[in-house]
Computed example of a mutant assay.
Amino acid sequence: MKKNTNPHLDHRSLPKGKYRHYKGNEYEVLGTAYHSETEELMVLYRPCYGDAALWVRPFDMFNELLSFEGRVAARFKLIEEYKNQSKKGSLK
Rank of each mutant, 00 (worst) to 15 (best):
M1C: 00
K2W: 11
K3R: 07
N4G: 10
N6I: 14
N6R: 08
P7M: 12
D10T: 10
H11Q: 14
S13M: 12
S13P: 04
P15H: 06
G17E: 04
G17S: 08
G17T: 07
Y19P: 03
R20I: 14
R20G: 02
H21R: 05
Y22A: 01
K23D: 09
Y27K: 04
Y27C: 15
V29H: 02
V29W: 06
L30F: 03
L30T: 00
A33Y: 05
A33R: 09
Y34K: 11
H35W: 02
H35S: 08
S36F: 14
E37M: 04
E37S: 09
T38W: 01
E40G: 07
E40Q: 12
E40W: 02
M42F: 14
L44Y: 03
R46W: 07
C48V: 11
C48R: 11
Y49Q: 07
Y49H: 12
Y49A: 12
Y49T: 10
G50V: 09
D51N: 14
A52S: 15
A52F: 12
W55P: 00
V56E: 01
R57G: 00
P58K: 14
P58R: 15
F59R: 04
M61D: 10
L66V: 15
S67P: 01
R71N: 04
R71P: 00
A74W: 10
A74M: 07
A74H: 11
R75H: 09
K77S: 10
K77T: 12
K77F: 05
L78C: 13
L78S: 05
L78P: 12
I79Y: 04
I79Q: 04
E80G: 04
E80D: 11
Y82E: 00
Y82S: 01
K83G: 04
K83S: 10
N84Q: 15
N84Y: 13
S86A: 08
K87L: 15
K87A: 15
K87D: 15
K88Y: 09
K88A: 08
K88H: 02
K88M: 10
K88P: 00
G89A: 12
G89N: 06
S90D: 13
L91V: 14
